[in-house]
């Protein structure tokens, strides 16, 4: 780990320590009375400690560990997605292929840095392979719907997420050996945008922005969270290959994508009649609840950087 990475993690640690302190004070002020909002806030902060620790260990271990970490993240996300998506008995071959072939293959391609393949593997080859596998069962009931759902799950949970570790494959002149910081910047800006939208919404939120799709999101939270996270992304330009104004623009782009990612994934949850994708992260819900914004931001961020910097 180089000096900048270490500084970054110390900064995140301080931020979390402050958050934990605020959570503790709020809890004490509430006294013995049950307050679900404060309890949920503290559960979220505790889960953040764990998530930051896991990412920190992967960074410390190196590139392979980061690829493996996101492989696992994709696995948990895909499993949550397919669990909530009704499939039929005849989808079994397609689902086996999704979990045991497509998922490892995509990360293998990212791991060996074969851009020409990992960028089209799922959108082209798997897109054609899955309906072929689904047709083997001879079951035409809701065929298009079923084939689309498995494809969509793989695009979101595997293809999109894999563009985070894919940042390690970019050769950026003058930025050699520091690509991990690109991942840190992206994940931090997008996640802070989520957190700050939540905080601004809880403190000042009045007008709902998409009441039918995501009832907890407000105009005030959206504007405040995106503006603050964009400012932080710009202020962190020194860990990226970007200039200050470039960092601000890119931060704005990924924050807007992250916001709409949250809305889209929330619409799917509403349609399936659930509040959370899963239960694996205390206070947050499932892996996909924490990841929805990253799913939408990562591929675009990857291509922005690749087009102009690599």
């Amino acid at each position: 780990m180089d000096r900048n990475t270490l500084l970054l993690f110390i900064g995140i640690g301080l931020l979390l320590a402050i958050a934990s302190l605020i959570g503790y004070l709020l809890k004490r002020r509430a006294g013995g009375t049950e307050n679900p909002v404060i309890d949920n806030l503290n559960a979220r902060i505790n889960a953040w400690w764990v998530m930051v620790a896991v990412i920190g260990i992967a960074f410390w271990l190196g590139h392979t560990a980061v690829v493996v970490l996101f492989y696992l993240v994709s696995f948990f996300a895909l499993r949550e997605f397919i669990t909530l998506t009704p499939t039929r008995r005849s989808d079994y071959p397609a689902l086996v292929a999704a979990f045991y072939f497509v998922l490892p293959m995509q990360y293998l391609l990212v791991g060996i840095g074969w851009y020409g393949m990992f960028a089209i593997f799922i959108p082209v080859y798997v897109f054609l392979l899955l309906p072929i596998l689904a047709s083997l069962g001879g079951d035409s009931t809701r065929f298009l719907e079923r084939a689309s759902k498995v494809q969509w799950g793989l695009m979101i949970a595997v293809f999109c997420v894999s563009h985070v570790p894919a940042l390690l494959t970019l050769d950026i002149r003058g930025y050699e050996g520091r690509n991990l910081l690109l991942i840190a910047w992206l994940v931090m800006v997008v996640q802070l945008s989520d957190v700050l939208q939540y905080v601004c919404g809880k403190l000042a939120g009045k007008r709902k922005i998409a009441p039918n799709l995501s009832p907890s999101k407000t105009v005030e939270g959206f504007v405040g969270g995106v503006a603050l996270a964009t400012a932080i992304g710009a202020a962190l330009f020194w860990i990226t290959p970007f200039a200050l104004w470039q960092a601000a623009l890119i931060a704005l782009a990924v924050n807007l994508l992250g916001f709409f990612g949250g809305i889209v994934m929330s619409a799917i949850k509403r349609d399936r009649g659930v509040k959370d994708w899963g239960h694996m992260i205390e206070g947050h819900g499932g892996m996909l609840d924490r990841l929805d914004s990253v799913c939408f931001a990562a591929p675009i961020f990857f291509h922005l950087v690749r087009y102009w910097w690599a």
Binding site: F75, R79, I82, T83, Y92, L95, F99, Y100
Partner: peptide, 18 residues
Amino acid sequence: ANLNRVMPKGRALPLPLL
């Protein structure tokens, strides 16, 4: 809930669903 999708009858390999 869901175990019929994890281990459909006559299939050897379980799917890792929740």
